[in-house]
Design a protein around this nucleic acid. Structure first.
Length: 342
DNA sequence: AAGTGACTCAACCGCAAAAGG
DNA sequence: GCCTTTTGCGGTTGAGTCACT
């Protein structure tokens, strides 16, 4: 299992491919197929290494490659599969005909990942993180816009959007922002969530029927993807990341799925609103239940002011979460046969 | 119009698995 | 079983482009 002796510098070209090179590669492969990538460039008359040729072919020249924007269905599939498989881009790509792993990886990093972050969803664990979702900016931008005094008219106008339960929640979080992470990760909450990392065979609440895929995940979670996040995350909220060893034992993976639907008007709260969240004192609430989410909502929710007044973009497609992981509900479509990746 | 920063994505790099002798 | 070669994968880079000031 040695290292590939790739691209022996001598005279081999690097960088962008020219149309002539592309044509040479296409012509050769159409004639001879793509058997041995190492000898292919020489036989095709290309001053490239085999690796470069393979990459060019698989990521760009292959005739079955679908180019252009990702559809909502494709995007949904990517997110769902990523929540299960992690950064297994090739496995994800195998589920999306015409899309390459590179394309999916790029799309994830440039679009989906950022959008999830804006929604307050950790793109690695796919779990809701209120520390990413800044409710105070929602309140301040809604109630205090252009004025140092609360804008009552605006507030009244929000009533259809935000019901008192949410305002109560938001204001309590607003009052104690420093406690946000403690609330999210307090032991009471964690104790209600299965611990895949250490106890892979979980007791599944009888009231919540599982899909086949979910059942499989309960047994064989994608621990790698979750563990990769352990060393980065500041669980204490004090800027000091805990060791991965410790975190592995306490880590609480959540396996979501998402439902997508198109909307030009972003409502980030609605995007996160299908979470059902337990506050640790058996007072379960669903963000969906405390919000109504008209498509024309003027109050996107985000701590980053850059996005508050931003116009709609491709990234502003609306994402809603569904699913279940104990106190967070998920649903994994049966059409996603994830078992083969396990 | 020029400068600057953000964004996108094709391509590269290094590692590891698979395949073959 | 060991070694070498080939292939595949995931992370990263950087040139080109766009948007904003």
């Amino acid at each position: 299992m040695g290292r590939a002796p790739c691209c022996e510098k001598s005279g081999l070209k690097k960088g962008p491919w020219t149309p002539e090179e592309d044509q040479k590669l296409i012509d050769y492969i159409q004639k001879h197929g793509y058997g041995n990538w190492r000898t292919l460039p020489k036989n095709a008359g290309l001053q490239r290494c085999g690796k470069s040729c393979r990459l060019r072919w698989t990521n760009y020249l292959r005739p079955d490659i679908k180019r252009g924007r990702f559809s909502f269905e494709e995007e949904e599939t990517i997110i769902q599969l990523h929540s299960i498989l992690g950064n297994k881009w090739s496995a994800i790509a195998s589920r999306l005909p015409g899309r390459t792993d590179n394309e999916i990886k790029n799309y994830w990093n440039t679009h989906i990942r950022k959008r999830l972050l804006r929604m307050g969803i950790d793109p690695v664990t796919h779990s809701l993180r209120l520390d990413l979702l800044d409710l105070s900016s929602l309140l301040s931008s809604s109630l205090y816009s252009n004025s140092s005094q609360p804008n009552i008219q605006r507030f009244l106008g929000m009533q259809p959007l935000v019901n008192p339960e949410l305002l109560k929640l938001a204001s309590s979080l607003f009052q104690s922002q420093n406690n946000q992470q403690n609330q999210l990760f307090n032991p009471q909450i964690q104790s209600q969530i299965p611990h895949f990392a250490t106890d892979p065979v979980q007791e599944i609440p009888a009231s919540l029927p599982l899909t086949e895929a979910e059942a499989q995940l309960m047994v064989e979670p994608n621990v790698d993807a979750y563990q990769s996040n352990f060393t980065d995350f500041d669980w204490q909220g004090n800027g000091i990341a805990s060791s991965s060893n410790t975190l592995t034992e306490d880590y609480v993976p959540q396996i979501p799925s998402y439902n997508f639907y198109s909307s030009d008007n972003q409502n980030l709260m609605s995007e996160a609103s299908n979470f059902q969240y337990s506050n640790g004192s058996n007072q379960n609430f669903s963000l969906a239940s405390v919000l109504s989410t008209p498509s024309s909502s003027p109050t996107p929710l985000n701590s980053n002011s850059t996005y508050v007044n931003s116009s709609s973009t491709e990234d502003d497609r609306e994402i809603s979460y569904g699913g279940r992981c104990d106190d967070i509900l998920f649903e994994i479509p049966n059409i996603l046969d994830v078992n083969e990746f396990m």
